[in-house]
Structures are given as C-alpha cells and as structure tokens.
Amino acid sequence: MTPTPRILYCHCAYAQIVPKEVKEAVLKKLCESNAAFDAVADLCEMSARRDPALKRLAEGGAVKIAACYPRAVKWLFHAAHADLAAEATEVLNMRVQSAAEVSAALFHPDLKPNLPAGKTAPPPASESPENEAREEMTNA
C-alpha cells in the first residue's frame, strides 16, 4: 500500500505575496484536521541559507507542498542541494489557488505530481573547500 503523502506548508512569512486569507485558511484547516504536518516560515529564506532542513523535507517519499509556483519551489529546493523527486511531489499554489482548492488537494489521498519536467540540471553551488574559499574571497 502506498503511504499517504506527507504535507509541507510554507507560510511565506517575509512577503505579502500569498494572500493572507488564503494561507490562514489553509493553516486553519491543517490545524483542525488532526493530520501530522511540517510547516516552515519561508522556503525562500531556507533556500537562501541553504538550510539542511530542506534536504530532510525533500527526502522521505511523496510530499504535497502548499506554497507558491511549482517552478519556483522546484528550483528553491535545488539551490539548497535538496532536489525534490519529480514523480513524488505535488505543489499547491496559494498565490493563485483558493484556500478550498488547496485544502482539498492537501487532504486528497492521491498525489498529482506537477513539478515542471526538464533537462537534468547541473549541480548548484559546490560545497568543495575551493568553492567555499572562492565565496569567502568574493565576500571579503
């Protein structure tokens, strides 16, 4: 039996681009549902910091993510060395979908993968010492 997809909710806390009423309604539904879920303040901030937590959130099988555009979510995770599995990720877009649509999709047992398909990507910023040193020099 296929396990129920995990749920990840992004609060997009540092910008007013996701309608407040949508993100609040989705979060309320999650809190009422008694479902286990992960929630983050802002995926952009985590990606910028290359937060290792993104790796943890990307791994572990099927996941439904309530956030923004699938293309943005795909490459935000990639930038943090935490590629999402295309066949196991469904992104619900709180910028354009209604709270009812997002909530219904989150609690639906089926997963509808919708990350943009594309060519194999090159690795992002290498974590090699040489590269880190180069970054430090650039910052200096």
Partner: peptide
C-alpha cells in the same frame, strides 16, 4: 493549536505537528 502554530511561523520558526495521522519529515 492554530494560534501556537501561526505565531511560531510568523516568528520564523520551522515546526512539525505530530499527534494525528500521517508522516512527517525525519530528523537530521
């Protein structure tokens, strides 16, 4: 639950709600 979760998120924290059915991300 909603007040606690939304306040923590507004303050920038990542959190996991455990208790009901379903899986969450593992530990690192």
């Amino acid at each position: 639950r909603f007040t606690a979760v939304s306040t923590l998120l507004e303050k920038g924290f990542a959190l996991t709600c455990v208790g009901g059915a379903g899986r969450v991300a593992g530990a690192d």
